[in-house]
Amino acid sequence: MQESQIAALIEPILSAHGLELDRLDVTPIGKRSVLRVTVDGDGPDGNGPLLDDIAQASSAISEALDVSPAVGKAPYTLEVSTRGVSKPLTEPKHFRRNAGRLVKLWLGDDQVTGRIRSVTDEAVTIEVDGAEREVPLAEIDKAVVQVEMNRSFEDEEEN
């Protein structure tokens, strides 16, 4: 199986469903291979793809792979999923799609936790203890979304 051929096959399908290919992994497991397709996208509200979009794209990808020489005759398992909250935010679009969410930023020896308020191609503005702070993306060593189990309804209305 050629990853480049598979990527070339599935990228137009994802695009037709309003999705982007974030990562493609082909892992041989015995006589089979596992094709892990990780997708991302804006979704209708700008906060990422919907489950229905992913399901429709997954079905279309499966059909295309079944008739494509890119996978050959080798048996495979297809897994299509989103980036999830555990993946680091690495591009402006990742920060934008998580606007309103709480994030932890590593800035050299410093760590800052705040809520994303706005994003440009060069910086993210986060709210930390009621004050806004603009952080240049180039200064961020690592950024991850913080899972909030007890976020209040008022927090949701602000976004």
Rank of each mutant, 00 (worst) to 15 (best):
Q2F: 06
E3L: 15
S4N: 09
A8R: 12
L9I: 11
I13R: 08
I13Y: 12
S15V: 04
H17L: 10
L21D: 03
D22Y: 14
R23V: 02
T27M: 10
T27K: 14
I29Y: 11
I29G: 02
K31F: 10
R32C: 01
S33C: 11
V34F: 13
V34N: 08
T38S: 08
D40T: 04
P44R: 09
P44T: 02
Q56M: 15
Q56C: 11
S59F: 14
A64K: 15
A64Y: 13
L65K: 07
V67W: 12
V67S: 09
V71I: 12
K73M: 05
K73L: 12
L78S: 03
V80T: 10
V85I: 14
S86R: 08
S86G: 12
K87M: 11
K87L: 09
T90F: 05
E91H: 13
H94F: 04
R97A: 01
N98P: 01
G100S: 05
K104S: 09
L105D: 01
L107N: 07
G108S: 06
D109A: 11
V112W: 02
T113G: 02
T113W: 03
S118G: 07
V119L: 04
D121K: 15
D121S: 13
E122H: 11
T125L: 06
E127S: 14
D129V: 06
D129K: 15
G130E: 15
R133L: 15
V135S: 07
L137R: 02
A143H: 07
A143Y: 05
Q146M: 10
E148A: 07
M149D: 03
N150L: 12
N150V: 04
S152D: 09
F153Q: 09
E154M: 10
E158D: 13
N159E: 07
